[in-house]
């Protein structure tokens, strides 16, 4: 069973810089052109199925705007992100 997960984007922090959009290996993050953050940016969001919860988006985020979760599978515990 492939790993699956999801991200939460804190729109207070997100500045729509698109670094996570480019970095995402599954190409499932996009800017949400229908929304504006309080600072006036289009925030990043999960735009498609297929997030593995790998956390690479959080590694490149300059504003620590992302929280990343991964569903627990029975076989394998996810390793922590950047240790």
């Amino acid at each position: 069973m492939p790993a699956s997960g999801w991200i939460e984007v804190d729109e207070l922090y997100c500045k729509g810089c698109e670094l996570c959009v480019t970095a995402c290996p599954k190409e499932v993050i996009a800017l949400d052109m229908d929304r504006l953050t309080p600072k006036g940016y289009h925030p990043a969001h999960l735009a498609a199925e297929g997030c593995t919860g790998c956390g690479i988006c959080a590694v490149v985020c300059p504003d620590a705007a992302l929280t990343v979760y991964r569903h627990v599978t029975q076989r394998k515990q996810p390793s922590s992100l950047v240790h």
């Binding site: 997960g5 500045k15 991964r70």
Partner: peptide, 26 residues
Amino acid sequence: ATLVYQRPTSFSEATTHYCPGCTHGI
């Protein structure tokens, strides 16, 4: 589910004045 990544506690709750995509934030 497990938490893979969240904002570090040594970070304050303030939003930065850095331009979008500036690596100072990283």
